[in-house]
Every structure is written in C-alpha cells, then in structure tokens.
C-alpha cells in the first residue's frame, strides 16, 4: 500500500501523481483483482448512477430527519425561488446540491460508493462530477482524478483509521474533503505539489472535527456536513490552484490529526454520548425515534 514514506522515496515530479498511485497499486495487487484504472472507472460509473438516482428521488429518510433538502437547493438553482436568494456560482451550487443529494440517497438505503466511508460518501463525487460537468472534462481524466483522490485517502488511512470511532469526523468527512480537493486540482491539471498542498489545506482546516450524530444515525449532522465539506474542498483546491501553499505538508497534518484523534474523548467518536447527540433536541429526537420503532416493530407489525 502506498504511504507517505514510500512517496517520499520516489521522484515525485517524474510523473503525474495518479500514475505513481496507479503503478504502485497495480504492482501490489492480488492476481485475481482488477487493475485500479478499471476498478476506478467502475466506481466512477456507480457514483454517476448514484447522483442521477439521488437527484430524481424525493422522499424522507426512514427517521424523517432528512430527505428533501437537496430538492430545496435544486428549486433555488432552477430560479423557481428567484435569483435574489442565490449566493454562489452555478458550479458551487451544484457541488452543494450533489453532496447533499447523495447523502440523502444513502440515508434512504440507496446505492452509493463509500468514499472513504458511507457517512462521507457525498464529498468526493460531488466535487469531481460537478467540476467535470462544468469544465466538460472527459472520463479518462475523471478516472485519474478519482485515483488521485483514492491515493491521498490510502496514504492517510495507512497512518490513521478512517472511522469516526477511531478519530472523529475529521477522519471521515475531513479526509473525504482532502481527497476531493486533490481530485479537483488533478482535474484542472494542477502539479503534484499543488495536489498535495490542496489536500493538506483541506484537512488542516477540519482538524478536531468530532463525530456526534443524533440517535447514532448517519444523518444529523452528516447529510448537511457533506454539503459544507464539499465546498470546503473546493476552497482548498481554489487556493492551491492560485498558487497558495500549505505551510504544513500533508503528512505532518495527518500526524496532527492522529494525535488529536487519540486525545479525543470517546464521547465524541461515534458513540453519540456527547455533543450534538446529547443536546436537548438530540435527546428528544432519540426518544421519539425509539418510541416510533418500538411501535413499528411490535409483533403485530412484523
């Protein structure tokens, strides 16, 4: 598996980052596994499929906490509500819209691509697909961007486990934003240094993010957070493309994330024993859901 140490030993400017990642992954694959470019193409197609289903669907999640927010964004983008309420360019609007729509689809048990996790599955596809559509970028380049994003996630995962239970949300949505930023810079032909710098910028600015979902569900704050962090990734990519460098390199940011994750109280690591989960509203929703499900799953209803 590719790591920061191994990348350090290679001549990083010899070829594009996605080629380095691709060669490394293929050289270490099991005989029966497909080549990473074929695998990434398949995942990209699954992502596109999930976006088209997500943007057509219109129903609440099982808990009723989410499901129709992407529709509200779509309405405002289609100017049904008038342009005086639109703050962003059509590209950024689409990034927010896709990210939230994919998470809503995940929440209603739709098919998604965990990237890196199910709870952060909206960020990478929203950024890569929206940017590709906006700049009319071909599939080949999109696959390279996805491999770039995957390589960044892979290097991070080999330092710290990508799970809210391990290091909080910084290790899920934070890493997804880092991956997405690198992917976008790759789409726009940024250099390897610019790609890694954008990934560092994105991750650096979500350090300490906790995982405190209401009622233990991948829903509040996860659905909207995917929208926020997809834009966060775009900001990092934009800064890097403008030539702004991260003062702290990616591997050191990951070290910091690991340290913070280890010190983070377990109440804020996917246990729903603190933070938003134990606010007055969080507890009320948890109790309401418990009551609803007890009724729904009583013997008579099964």
């Amino acid at each position: 598996m590719i790591t920061f140490d191994k990348l350090d030993k290679l001549d990083i400017n010899s070829k594009p980052l996605h080629e380095i990642f691709q060669e490394y992954e293929d050289a270490h694959k099991r005989a029966k596994d497909p080549y990473i470019r074929d695998e990434a193409l398949k995942r990209l197609e699954d992502m596109k499929e999930s976006v088209s289903r997500a943007t057509e669907a219109c129903s609440f999640s099982f808990s009723g906490m989410s499901g129709l927010d992407s529709l509200k964004l779509k309405n405002i983008m289609d100017e049904k509500e008038g342009t005086d309420r639109v703050l962003f360019s059509s590209l950024i609007m689409k990034v927010i819209y896709y990210a939230i729509a994919i998470l809503e689809e995940n929440q209603r048990m739709g098919k998604i691509v965990a990237c890196p996790t199910a709870g952060s599955c909206g960020i990478v596809p929203a950024c890569i697909l929206a940017v590709s559509e906006h700049f009319k970028i071909g599939v080949k380049k999109q696959v390279s961007a996805l491999i770039t994003a995957g390589g960044i996630g892979s290097m991070i995962s080999n330092e710290v486990g990508l799970a809210g239970a391990v290091a909080g949300c910084q290790a899920e949505c934070g890493v997804a934003a880092s991956m997405a930023a690198g992917g976008v810079v790759c789409l726009l032909n940024g250099s390897n240094d610019e790609i890694l710098s954008s990934a560092a910028l994105a991750l650096k600015n979500v350090l300490g993010l906790v995982c405190d979902p209401i009622a233990g569900l991948v829903e509040v704050p996860c659905v909207k957070r995917n929208g926020f962090l997809a834009v966060h990734a775009m900001v990092a990519a934009q800064m890097s493309l403008a030539g702004i460098k991260s003062v702290v390199p990616l591997n050191e940011v990951v070290e910091a994330m690991k340290e913070i994750g280890a010190e983070m109280n377990s109440r804020f690591k996917e246990t729903s024993e603190g933070g938003l989960a134990t606010t007055k509203t969080g507890i009320r929703i948890e109790e309401e859901l418990k009551e609803k499900w007890t009724k729904l799953y009583s013997k008579d209803n099964l």
């Binding site: 699954d46 929440q107 098919k111 998604i112 691509v113 965990a114 491999i147 996630g153 892979s154």
Partner: peptide, 21 residues
C-alpha cells in the same frame, strides 16, 4: 487500505458497519 478500498465499496447505505456489515 488500498486505493480500491478507499474508493469503495459500492453499497446500499447508510452505514458500512450497520448496513453493509
């Protein structure tokens, strides 16, 4: 994790431990 595991799996949501597992 390998790259292929980071950009996957394709699964029905919403949770890798509580649904896919």
């Amino acid at each position: 994790m390998k790259i292929k595991d980071v950009i996957g799996p394709t699964m029905v949501g919403p949770s890798s431990s509580h649904t896919a597992g």
